[in-house]
Design a protein around this nucleic acid. Sequence first.
DNA 1: CTGAAAGCGCTAACAT
DNA 2: ATGTTAGCGCTTTCAG
Lengths: 335, 335
Amino acid sequence: MKVTIRDVAKAAGVSVSTVSKVLNGHYSISEKTVEHVQKVMRELDYHPNANAQNFAFGTSKTIVLLADMSQNMAFRNPHMFEIISGLEEALRKRGYRLILQGTDETSACSYAEDIISRNSADGIAIHVGVMSHPLAATLTRMNFPHIVLGMPDFESQVCWIDNNNIYSGTVAANFLLSEGYKKIAYIGGKSYDLGSTHRLQGVRQGLASAGYRLEDQYIWLGESTRADSFRMTTKLLEQGDKPDAIICSNNYIALGCVDAIQGKGLKIPKDIGVMTFDDYPFSQIIEPKLTVVDINVRDMGAQAGKFLIDIIKHPNMQIQTYITTSSVIKRESTR
Amino acid sequence: MKVTIRDVAKAAGVSVSTVSKVLNGHYSISEKTVEHVQKVMRELDYHPNANAQNFAFGTSKTIVLLADMSQNMAFRNPHMFEIISGLEEALRKRGYRLILQGTDETSACSYAEDIISRNSADGIAIHVGVMSHPLAATLTRMNFPHIVLGMPDFESQVCWIDNNNIYSGTVAANFLLSEGYKKIAYIGGKSYDLGSTHRLQGVRQGLASAGYRLEDQYIWLGESTRADSFRMTTKLLEQGDKPDAIICSNNYIALGCVDAIQGKGLKIPKDIGVMTFDDYPFSQIIEPKLTVVDINVRDMGAQAGKFLIDIIKHPNMQIQTYITTSSVIKRESTR
DNA sequence: CTGAAAGCGCTAACAT
DNA sequence: ATGTTAGCGCTTTCAG
């Protein structure tokens, strides 16, 4: 059968608590005993039972992640899985494990309640996609260590972490200016698309602080689809005064934008520059390869993991933050 | 403080073991007592401590997944995360949780040994990408419940599950024949690319059983890159007798193939049909949208979860299997 | 049908 | 520096 701490104690001729102390590197054990006990452990091929340790310590060294992982999500939103990868790595480095729990927005709250009340995890990470008002309420009411991946689209007291899209917008604007572009246009989503809105705001700020401005007729906001972007870009290009560069709020919009530009017989980047955000696989597949502001999402996951562990260790800590890790990857769609 | 089973027992005026039996639906408790105890539980807002239960039951109701989740993996291989999603769902339905553990091939084996010897999971799932000889040896030597996601490229006694690429190849061939194509070519990876090799084999079989054959000059095997595929397709098209359809072993190869065809001024699907395997996001983005044999990978993950739990419940069960869940998604690259 | 008591394997005062 | 002992919260024989 399984060899337990008692077997080791017996074989080593010491008490169980001494073995336990060796296991946990307690200072009070003499070097000689430590070595002896460790030798016995090796001989017996002893490995402390994880369940028993967790139980005795009153901790599970475990974080659960609530996220929507329904059909095709990995294809539609690889982004999320890259965040998860970063999160897992950060947690692992700190001795925690990540439990994946797929859920929809409706069930997320009861899952969280169950986890908290049954103490089946030391903390919860929640992808913003399944975040809801009741869940936020539960989290703050129970005062349980948590972090939301992405900024919730409503006010609350929960801890969240997100990329700074405003900053990314500014990075994009600054880059284009530094490359000599002057008449910059923006194609993005409507006001409820917070990402797009923030990026737009950042672009504005970037231009403003360099003494330029984003002209109203150069801003087109619509659906985040290839088709609607095609429509908007076409309209934009049919106006009298053409921009010399277009910033697209995301990859899908960029796709339609490129179609439209090429449809008008214009060359990228010779006649007009294009750039967008996030380094999706197809940023590199479409012609020309897109210049993007890359927001290191994996790093965001890693930061989230770090913060969550900090929160667990310092329960009164409060985090609500943006992190800024964007940088430009220059490819062929800008000169 | 936390309310425990003892508090419930006291408040309900019964013994701890009675409460435990109510918790676990033991037959021997009278309906009256059950109801009474449950009422007290609700009143006290009692929730059994998960750690303690696991400890007492000697199980963790937990599966760990070993997989390479290094930088950009979610973008390079969304496929894997879709499998993981399916796996998680299947496990959850059966009362198990999925722990994610990122690793490289080298560390995977010692992670597995640790998990097994410390009993920190009831089973292990391993993505084939981190599979190795020593890991296979460990798994069979320790006789621990496991399942490998994907077929290992070496002989062993481990349990694995994979799509049947041979079958998928046949599906592709049959589809093209049924659409009226007759001169079919194949562009794929070299012999060590098992996926490509099996698909090729399936294509051959499909054609053979319909009385056709895959001509040698129509088979080009090289690197799985857009560039090499471009090269191979160009060569193929420069031969005297052109095929009327090309099957590409994967999406990257399809990309280069489409480039080459269009580079020769040929139209898809008018002059030549193209199809490939796996429904990657960019199968839909490139022009024309690709007809693919879709191998429901999420379902493969789900099956893996089901099998793994079966193995846990019936330890002497042996599984080494293909599953076949391919079907054609017809889009614009075939007529 | 219910309860007393012995564990599951490990940790952590407290005593020596 | 080491050992004694009492738990951690729940399950599970075994008696009654």
